[in-house]
Design a binder for these strands. Structure first.
Length: 880
RNA sequence: GGGCGGAUAGCUCAGCGGUAGAGCACCUGCCUUACAAGCAGGGGGUCACAGGUUCGAACCCUGUUUCGCCCA
């Protein structure tokens, strides 16, 4: 790559290295004996889906962890897979077939499911290819799908066991029914949206003609299914009515007035209509009072036969009609406009109809208890910890889980019903005959909620219910990384099922990332059309740029905005280190390099190794604590600021002029430091680091299986730090003066530097070439202030830094006014700073209570500021 | 109604007890043979507001305002 262009091109590089890694089988666990396992099972994306930026972030986070642990030497497994996404996929295929003129119902179940499989085979891999393009080091040999035979077996096993343990039951309940998807939904698949609506007050006359009761409703059409009116037992207003009968308008049915604690006497009229078949609360009241459950709205959202004259009307038409008819009878007291929360199907957006239907439910309380305990005890940890509260709050109020779905695509419920008697058999294998009466049996038509299989994902993917080697080695898994919006859907259910069926927690750490919003801070959504396609971004900037941009702006649990600017900055960074490597390689050609670990006494060499050490320490610790953004920032700053802007610039001096031995040592340092820095960067930007690592002298086949850098002993003490600081201060001071005079870099300048003590003079002599080069100087004189022979340069502008005054002599006259105001300004800020420090030190409380190191630092700072102040005053006097 | 999170430079965000940071934008000067996707220098912030704790608060506590999310 020595001869290559000055621009890094990610596209030629990324595909190549991904193939290289796969061929080397580096994604598979090392299975090295004695090494501890580190496992992540990837949250399975929908098999029909495409990657969005949220996936990209989550995938990058996981890849960072995985690559980090692999380099630490752990037996590392990242297991990929996809989810069959029942309702979503069925809708998608259904839509496609309809556009081709086919009807799912005419086609029949078997044919349709076959079509879905075909569709899945054809299009289902898209998202996996996208994960690949991100550079995800997942073990493709262990790829799983929720409807694989093994995973399906796990689903059946769990269903049967739960049934046998009495944790699964079938019953009539009010479920969230989507009249468009034609299936029941669990509570959390319903989105509640505030909508304007009307609250209609309706008079129900008493059957005996001795009065009436007014009730209020937002869904007037349900009154056709009322089977009671309820009031609070202590409500004096209605006490006399309890036990009487009311004549239900429009249908003329006689229904009782019942007393029930559920009714809030403060709300509305204190009397409520009771529709047990169409409202969960009414259902409960109906249960307590043994009321009839009259279903007036059907599965298709139209009124049933029980709705009498309204049969066949759509629910909204019926509402309108009922209101008109009631009005005509003068039974509407008033209509209030209100805002109320209406449930909508998460998948299709249709308003949910609470409907009485026969469904399978998981009895959740017994499963929840140990799952709560696992988090309480710390066996499972949330990062950041505040999500623990959200989890607990949900788990403590959890309700039974409706798991049956009236669709065809998914795991069919392994329950069989006798065609003759009412026997139900739940079984791993289909029974041939009813064990009770010998009659024929048929399987339940419904399939299970997709989350039912997802809940088993951490162990079903590893082979459960079989006791496989993988299960023994990699379970419990280490980290689950996911977005916080599926704590309820998925995380909690995995914890419950994991503990119940394996006796162990499914993972130790739950790592939460936030939502990636668009550049305006809005949620990305299909309807807004504001989604960013990660593939477009990769096409334009490369996967590394996208990864580092996402990671740099992420913090656990926090939402972030997608920023094209940041991605661009990321690509610039890749280009920067590419060019740094080009520089090293150009110098490396035909020149000897010292043997590895040849010690160097040079201040700059020791400094960069010291900085590398600090970076290594910080990055390692940040990664251990899931602070990916912080870790990325450290390596970014190290490479750009310390390595490129300072070390390489300093190294140039010795590469040009010194002895061969010195050059060899500089090259060695450049290569050693860059190699380690590339390793530290590798989890974040795997492609460019692999490319550059290969370009540099190296041993081995891939950076991804090298050992993670460790902190090493570096001889660099406090005084070394001060020396280097002095070097930087001087160079900056000189550059500052140059800028004052707007000197172009091509124009060399002269300076005289007065240093406050002799020791520092000697030290600076050793790096005077560096100062000269980085300050673009021709002549430089370093003098000790203690030297009697010195005299001030007559015409010069000057800069005061810690421990030194820099004079830049001018050929012409110094602009006294300009110089005066510049130095005065500096003097003022210096004085203000000094005042602050003095005030602090004058406070006995500070000196007594603050840590010694802080007090010492303040004292040093005071001394330094005092000297600088004096120097500045001196200069101003000279100018006067 | 309950809970959670955000409010820091013009914009987007880090920092979360010891003298305010980054990217982008802005101003000045540079094609200084690794990089103009760059280099050097510079301007810009009573860290939402009010109290409190502390020697010391952007950071901890309390309250207020405001934006957003989750749950009922």
């Amino acid at each position: 790559m020595t001869e290559l262009s000055s621009r890094y091109d990610p596209h030629t590089v990324e595909h190549k290295w991904y193939q290289h890694w796969r061929q080397g089988r580096y994604f598979e666990p090392s299975q090295a004996p004695g090494k501890k396992s580190f496992t992540i099972v990837m949250p399975p994306p929908n098999v029909t889906g495409v990657l969005h930026v949220g996936h990209a972030l989550n995938t990058t986070w996981q890849d960072i962890l995985i690559r980090f642990h692999r380099m630490l030497g752990d037996n590392t497994l990242w297991l990929p897979g996809t989810d069959h996404a029942g309702i979503h996929t069925q809708m998608k295929v259904d839509e496609m077939l309809r556009s081709q003129g086919y009807d799912r119902r005419e086609m029949g179940r078997e044919q349709f499911v076959q079509q879905v499989w075909q569709w899945k085979e054809k299009y289902g891999g898209e998202i996996l290819r996208q994960i690949e393009r991100l550079g995800a080091s997942v073990d493709w040999s262990r790829l799983r799908f929720t409807m694989d035979p093994g995973l399906s077996e796990a689903v059946t096993e769990v269903f049967v066991r739960l049934y046998e343990e009495g944790l699964l039951y079938r019953g009539y309940y009010i479920t969230n029914w989507c009249v468009s998807c034609l299936t029941a939904l669990s509570d959390i698949e319903v989105d509640h949206i505030d909508e304007p609506g009307t609250l209609t007050y309706i008079r129900y006359p008493l059957a005996d003609g001795a009065g009436e009761i007014t009730v209020a409703t937002t869904r007037a059409e349900t009154m056709l299914g009322d089977t009671a009116v309820a009031v609070h037992p202590d409500d004096e207003r209605w006490k006399a009515y309890v036990g009487k009968m009311v004549r239900l308008p429009l249908v003329n049915r006689l229904i009782p007035v019942v007393a029930d604690d559920y009714v809030d006497p403060q709300y509305g009229t204190g009397a409520v209509k009771v529709t047990p078949a169409h409202d969960p609360n009414d259902f409960a009241i109906g249960d307590r009072h043994h009321l009839e459950r009259l279903k007036v709205i059907g599965e298709d959202g139209r009124m049933t036969e029980a709705a009498g004259a309204y049969q066949g009307l759509d629910r909204y038409q019926a509402r309108k009609q009922v209101l008109e008819d009631l009005n005509a009878l003068g039974l509407v007291v008033k209509v209030e406009n209100i805002t109320h929360s209406v449930g909508h199907c998460e998948k299709c957006g249709t308003a949910i109809e609470p409907l009485l239907s026969l469904q399978w439910f998981v009895r959740i309380a017994p499963l929840a208890e140990p799952a709560i305990e696992a988090v309480r005890s710390g066996a499972i940890e949330f990062v950041p910890p505040r999500f623990e509260k959200i989890y607990m709050n949900w788990m403590n109020n959890i309700r039974d889980w409706c798991v049956s779905r009236q669709i065809w695509w998914g795991h069919r419920i392994p329950a069989y019903y006798c065609d003759v008697c009412d026997n139900i058999v739940v079984s791993r294998v289909p029974p041939e005959h009813c064990p009770r009466c010998g009659g024929t049996m048929h399987q339940d038509d419904d399939v299970l909620d997709t989350w039912f299989s997802s809940a088993l994902w951490p162990f079903s993917t590893l082979g459960w219910p079989r006791q496989t080697e993988d299960l023994a080695t990699f379970y419990p898994t280490s980290v689950l990384s996911t977005a916080y919006d599926i704590i309820f859907f998925w995380v909690s259910r995995m914890i419950m099922q994991g503990i119940h069926f394996t006796g162990q927690v499914p993972f130790r750490t739950v790592l939460m990332h936030g939502l990636v919003r668009d550049e305006q801070g809005r949620k990305m959504s299909k309807s807004l059309g504001n989604g960013v396609d990660p593939m477009d971004v990769i096409d334009k900037y490369g996967a590394d740029a996208l990864r580092i941009a996402l990671v740099l702006s992420s913090a656990p649990g926090n939402d972030q905005r997608y920023s094209a600017e940041r991605v661009e900055a990321g690509s610039h960074f890749a280009n920067k280190i590419y060019n740094a490597t080009r520089f090293v390689l150009m110098n490396l050609s035909n020149r000897p390099m010292a043997a590895k670990d040849t010690p160097s006494n040079h201040l700059a060499d020791r400094w960069i190794r010291y900085r590398l050490n600090m970076a290594t320490r910080d990055i390692t610790s940040y990664l251990e604590n899931f602070e990916f953004g912080q870790a990325a920032r450290v390596i970014y700053d190290f490479l750009w600021d310390d390595f490129c802007d300072w070390y390489i610039e300093l190294a140039k001096v010795r590469l040009k002029s010194s002895s061969e031995r010195e050059r060899a040592i500089v090259l060695r340092t450049l290569v050693d430091v860059e190699q380690d820095a590339l390793k530290l960067l590798h989890p974040f930007m795997p492609f460019v680091t692999e490319e550059l690592w290969h370009a540099l002298p190296h041993q081995g086949d891939s950076i991804m299986v090298t050992r993670w850098p460790r902190e090493q002993f570096v001889d660099f003490n406090d005084d070394d730090q001060k020396q280097f600081q002095a070097l930087q201060d001087l160079i900056r001071g000189i550059r500052n003066l140059r800028a004052e005079l707007t000197l172009p870099p091509s124009k060399r300048a002269d300076v005289t530097i007065w240093v406050d003590d002799q020791v520092r003079v000697d030290q600076l002599q050793t790096v005077q070439e560096e100062i000269r080069e980085l300050g673009r100087l021709s002549h430089m004189t370093i003098l000790s202030r203690t030297d009697d022979a010195i005299s001030k340069p007559p015409h010069a502008i000057s800069q005061v830094v810690s421990g030194a005054t820099i004079y830049m002599p001018l050929e012409g006259l110094v602009d006294i006014d300009k110089e005066n105001s510049r130095l005065s300004k500096l003097l003022e800020t210096t004085r203000a700073e000094l005042d602050r420090v003095r005030r602090q030190l004058a406070d006995p409380n500070f000196c007594q209570r603050a840590p010694q190191a802080v007090v010492d630092k303040a004292r040093m700072s005071e001394q330094d500021l005092e000297i600088r102040l004096a120097r500045l005053q001196e200069r101003l006097e000279d100018l006067a």
